[in-house]
Amino acid sequence: MDETGKELVLALYDYQEKSPREVTMKKGDILTLLNSTNKDWWKVEVNDRQGFVPAAYVKKL
């Protein structure tokens, strides 16, 4: 969790967005987890953008 109590995830792999609903991340990025109710796609925030990334590409910290 960060200082505001939000849950964080670590990008395990690079991911290039394939639609406007997704976000690009690089391996090693720390992202804010917004929603993990879907087992396949998690909603995150990175670089002031919100979108989805494959759940298998990130790990909760």
Rank of each mutant, 00 (worst) to 15 (best):
Q16H: 13
D2V: 15
V9R: 02
T24E: 04
K27Y: 04
L61G: 04
L31M: 14
D48H: 11
R49Y: 05
L31F: 07
V46W: 08
L8F: 15
G5S: 13
V53S: 00
L34M: 07
D14M: 03
G28S: 03
V58Q: 00
Y13T: 07
D29Y: 05
V53F: 00
D48L: 10
F52L: 08
T24M: 04
S19M: 07
L61N: 03
Y57M: 12
T37Q: 11
N38L: 09
V46F: 15
A55D: 02
P20H: 11
L61R: 03
Y57P: 01
W42G: 00
K26R: 12
T4M: 14
V58W: 01
D40F: 15
W42P: 01
E7L: 12
N47H: 12
T24H: 04
D29E: 11
D48E: 10
D14I: 02
N35G: 06
V46T: 14
D29Q: 15
K27C: 07
K6V: 14
K60T: 08
A11Y: 01
K6H: 13
K18W: 04
K27D: 02
V44L: 03
Y13R: 15
N47G: 15
L31Q: 00
N47L: 11
E17A: 15
S36D: 15
R49K: 11
M25A: 02
G5W: 11
A11G: 03
L34P: 00
Y57E: 02
Q50A: 12
Y13C: 14
Q16N: 15
V44E: 00
T37C: 11
K26Y: 11
G51W: 03
Q16D: 14
Y13Q: 13
V9K: 00
D29L: 05
N38D: 15
N38H: 12
E22A: 05
A55V: 06
L10A: 06
K43N: 07
V53Y: 00
E45C: 11
D2F: 10
D2T: 13
M1S: 13
L10D: 01
P54H: 02
P54T: 01
V44G: 00
T32E: 09
A55H: 03
K60V: 12
Y13P: 00
D48R: 09
E7Y: 11
T24K: 03
L12R: 04
G5H: 14
P20M: 10
S36I: 06
K59M: 14
K39P: 15
K39F: 08
L33Q: 00
K59V: 15
E22G: 12
S19Y: 07
E17G: 15
K60C: 09
D40M: 13
T32M: 10
K18M: 12
K60A: 07
Q50L: 07
L33C: 07
K59R: 13
K39L: 09
L34R: 03
K6S: 09
Y57N: 05
P20L: 09
R21N: 15
M25C: 06
L8E: 07
D14W: 03
T24V: 03
I30E: 03
L10P: 00
A55Y: 02
N47V: 11
G51A: 03
K59C: 14
D40K: 13
E17C: 12
W42C: 04
R49C: 06
T32L: 14
K26C: 10
L31R: 00
W41K: 02
A55W: 02
K6W: 11
V58H: 01
F52R: 03
V9G: 11
N38E: 10
T32F: 11
N35C: 10
K43G: 04
Q50I: 14
P20W: 10
R49M: 07
A11W: 02
S36V: 07
V44R: 00
Y13N: 08
L61Y: 08
Y15I: 01
L33M: 03
G51I: 05
T32Q: 12
W41N: 02
E22H: 06
N35P: 03
L34D: 01
K39T: 09
E3P: 14
V53D: 01
E45S: 10
K27H: 05
S36K: 07
N47W: 09
L33H: 01
V58G: 01
T37Y: 09
L34C: 06
Y57G: 06
Y15K: 00
E17S: 15
K26T: 07
M1W: 13
E7V: 15
Y15M: 01
T37I: 08
R49E: 05
L12E: 04
K39Q: 12
